[in-house]
């Protein structure tokens, strides 16, 4: 067990836990955006910064989602420095997200109503990378990636064309925190807006969800019988 102090409370955490996990286990709220418990820590949105004090060093800000619990560490999750920093980061998110309700709401939580700098073009994608990482780490397809660099970074399939490898599973749609990625479902044809080709809509062979793409069913063809025999099929009524 590792002993540390968070907001003046003595806390025990198992080795390998991140500060964010330790905080949440102890009921301490920390805002996050690019974090998801099912994915590897990424540390990009910087909303989860906390202030840490180590012996003899001056304090510094670290991303709680990626920083491991260390013995004797003293952590402040809501100090003046933390608040100041989150406000600036929220304002920077608002620079392109001023038309996105989720971002506007988030910024106002930190008391930011207006961004002093606005990008010429509003954009609800905040490059949190959740979709890209979910597609890679959970789905295992890697149909999309973050392309270009710097301010031109964006989510896209290869060659910025619809992706032939996308299976239309919709994980990216579900995980997107700003509603940037949308499921388009017109006349029974199903596609992930911007990313996948059109697929016929079908009922999922595992869970019987009606919003599954036919491509997904093809892909899981080989595994459904195994899955059914392990009793994980959702199609209980046969």
């Amino acid at each position: 067990m590792i002993h540390l102090t968070i907001d003046d409370k003595s806390i025990e955490a198992t080795a390998g836990r991140t500060l964010l996990e330790a905080c949440r286990e102890n009921g301490i709220q920390i805002p996050t955006l690019c974090y998801h418990p099912a994915l590897e820590p990424y540390g990009a949105c910087r909303l989860c910064v906390v202030e840490i004090y180590k012996e003899e060093q001056s304090s510094r800000l670290v991303a709680a989602c990626a920083y491991p619990c260390e013995e004797g560490l003293n952590v402040k999750t809501n100090s003046k420095a933390v608040q100041r920093n989150r406000r600036v980061v929220a304002e920077l998110l608002l620079a392109s997200g001023y038309d996105t309700p989720e971002i506007v709401a988030l910024a106002s939580e930190f008391g930011v109503k207006e961004a002093r700098y606005k990008m010429p073009q509003a954009d609800s994608c905040i490059i949190c990378g959740l979709c890209v990482r979910a597609c890679k780490e959970i789905v295992g397809i890697s149909a999309i990636s973050l392309i270009n660099r710097g301010i031109n970074k964006k989510v896209s399939p290869p060659f910025e064309e619809t992706s032939p490898t996308c299976i239309g599973c919709g994980t990216c749609v579900l995980i997107c925190p700003t509603g940037y990625i949308k499921l388009r479902d017109v006349f029974g044809s199903h596609s992930i807006h911007r990313y996948s080709s059109d697929y016929d809509r079908a009922q999922c062979r595992i869970c019987s969800d009606l919003n599954m793409s036919s491509k997904f069913n093809q892909l899981i063809e080989g595994v459904t019988s195994d899955a059914a025999s392990y009793g994980i099929s959702g199609d209980q009524n046969g």
């Binding site: 890679k136 990636s145 973050l146 392309i147 270009n148 660099r149 290869p158 060659f159 490898t165």
Partner: peptide
């Protein structure tokens, strides 16, 4: 390796 990774590298 996935094409998406190659495209990311090529544009980075």
């Amino acid at each position: 390796i996935p094409l998406s990774q190659a495209y990311a590298v090529a544009t980075f």
